[in-house]
């Protein structure tokens, strides 16, 4: 009657290939630029998610050619967008997240990434909850879903660099 006993595998911070999902406001955190730089250095996909109106108003300055913009019609970056297809097409297994409201866009995008079988890690020093009192609850909820979900930008940069060292040349 008892379910089979299975040992949980230890997971790396970066499992398979990473991508970075960037929400509004990420650039306001000083820790963010090193993270973006490390992801770009690895040639991993970068996806900027924002409401279309804001994008038009502010221009496309942050994205480079080959990087992606997705309109955010709801809260989760997976809802009503091509994100899931895009990640599969680029053979991504681990989604890194920075910017946005921890308890809203980040948490619900994390849940959808999780339910779509992606590994997901958030740079908790590059996001804030609204209201701020909900920050810890949202981070704990994500850590409940995936051990290792909570990271700092610096820890993600270290993991990306270590990961890159183990890869064959592209």
């Amino acid at each position: 009657m008892n379910p089979p006993v299975v040992c949980k595998p230890a997971r790396a911070i970066i499992e398979g290939n990473p991508a970075l999902l960037v929400f509004k406001g990420a650039a306001e955190y000083p820790e963010f630029s090193a993270l973006l730089g490390a992801v770009r250095e690895q040639g991993a996909p970068v996806i900027f998610a924002e409401a279309a109106q804001r994008r038009l108003a502010e221009g496309l300055a942050a994205a480079r050619p080959g990087e992606h913009w997705i309109d955010l019609p709801r809260l989760s970056a997976f809802l009503g967008t091509a994100l899931s297809l895009l990640l599969r097409q680029r053979n991504v297994q681990t989604l890194l997240v920075a910017g946005g409201r921890t308890n809203v866009e980040v948490h619900y995008s994390f849940v959808d990434a999780h339910q779509n079988d992606f590994f997901c890690r958030v740079a908790e020093d590059c996001m804030a909850a609204e209201p701020p009192a909900l920050q810890e609850g949202a981070l704990k909820a994500m850590e409940y879903l995936q051990t290792g979900a909570r990271q700092t930008a610096a820890a993600l940069v270290r993991a990306l660099k270590a990961d890159r060292a183990h890869r064959p040349n592209p």
Partner: peptide
Amino acid sequence: SLIDFGRELDGFERIHCIEDSPG
């Protein structure tokens, strides 16, 4: 067979809700 757990065993949760089990 556990094939449909996705990432659900990568966090706090253990194996749960096996279909057609009495519990």
